[in-house]
């Protein structure tokens, strides 16, 4: 049944695309008057992509227009953000905004063509995942202090994996080296998947990686979490300390939100935010976000915009330190 409905609606979209007049903004309540694109800066299939797809389904149902996820991965997410910057500010192009293109890339690539704060309206904060330091059980280390001592005793002996040069794992690991004085040896990977495979196989003894995707390994006993980069302990790893709690100033979160280019009418922004807030309250989304380990916190659009600006400023020196 569902398939037939889906095919029907796809046909309706195809017709709708052809017929809707370009101009003619009616009353502000008219939005959305044609299918809305949600740009995602990751290839399909990952957790962030799924967040976008799940919300797209909810918004399609509540707002009566199809919300279509469009994956535009590449160049540290700047491909998608650049496309968003260039899109018409009419609320029909959104982006699942996140840490890398908005807080890391503009510092790392000076030729990034947009300003992450001034060129966008950051509408809704969705949630965040935190970074964890995991070691292999074969090291027989289960607390942070022992690990730091062991690493200090043999500078450069312990390799750590990150999901790439300039990834948040890499940046935070270099911060860790700076703050603790424990020298580690960087092995970059192309994404988290291959890194976790090598970690499991015992090729790299240590990884800095987002917490949720490592929870099955923690449960199984093939990864030992030493500390997380949150400001307070997280629900999914209640027995694992934060770095700050252990006396090291290392805080990082990979946030997710919804952003538009600047200039979208206020009524549209409010309607979008309201619809998103409602979607995120629904039971199945809450359950889904919980299984994915998304840590949430209520934020207004204004607070979220300030948050993005503050994050941008906070990451600037970290990125610079890691990349030289």
């Amino acid at each position: 049944m569902t398939t037939r409905r889906d095919i029907l609606s796809a046909t309706v979209i195809a017709l709708g695309l052809g017929l809707s007049p370009g101009a003619g903004v009616l009353a502000d309540t008219a939005w959305p008057e044609k299918p809305v694109r949600i740009l995602v800066s990751f290839p399909p299939g990952g957790a962030s992509d799924l967040v976008a797809r799940l919300l797209a389904e909810k918004l399609s149902a509540s707002l009566g227009q199809k919300f279509v996820v469009e994956n535009k991965p590449g160049a540290a997410g700047t491909v998608a953000a650049t496309a968003l910057q260039g899109a018409a500010p009419d609320g029909h192009t959104l982006m699942l905004s996140n840490l890398t293109p908005f807080n890391v890339a503009p510092t790392r690539f000076p030729d990034t063509p947009y300003d992450p704060v001034a060129d966008f309206d950051h509408i809704t904060y969705i949630g965040a995942v935190h970074l964890g330091l995991f070691v292999a059980p074969s090291l027989e280390i289960d607390d942070l202090e022992t690990f730091i001592e062991a690493a200090k005793a043999a500078p450069g002996k312990f390799e750590y994996g990150s999901s790439g040069v300039g990834s948040w794992g890499h940046i935070i690991a270099e911060r860790f080296v700076d703050v603790t004085g424990a020298e580690l040896f960087h092995i970059p990977y192309k994404g988290s998947g291959p890194m976790r495979l090598d970690f499991r196989a015992g090729v790299v003894p240590t990884i800095f990686d987002a917490v949720p995707q490592n929870l099955p390994s923690v449960e199984e006993g093939s990864a030992v979490p030493l500390a997380v980069t949150a400001t307070q302990r997280i629900d999914t790893l209640p027995n694992v300390p934060t770095f700050t709690e252990m006396g090291y100033d290392i805080v990082a979160e990979n946030w997710l939100g919804v952003s538009t280019p600047t200039g979208v009418p206020a009524q549209v922004r409010e309607k979008l935010d309201a619809a998103l807030q409602e979607a995120m309250m629904s039971d199945d989304v809450v359950a889904q976000f919980d299984t994915w380990g998304l840590v949430r916190e209520p934020m207004t659009s204004a607070e979220f915009s300030e948050f993005v600006a503050a994050q941008f400023a906070a990451w600037k020196p970290l990125v610079a330190a890691a990349m030289d």
């Binding site: 796809a10 046909t11 195809a14 695309l17 052809g18 694109r37 279509v68 469009e70």
Partner: peptide, 15 residues
Amino acid sequence: FIAGLGIPLTAIRGL
């Protein structure tokens, strides 16, 4: 491509 697979292509510009 457009009707069957639903790929978002601009069929005829300006229409």
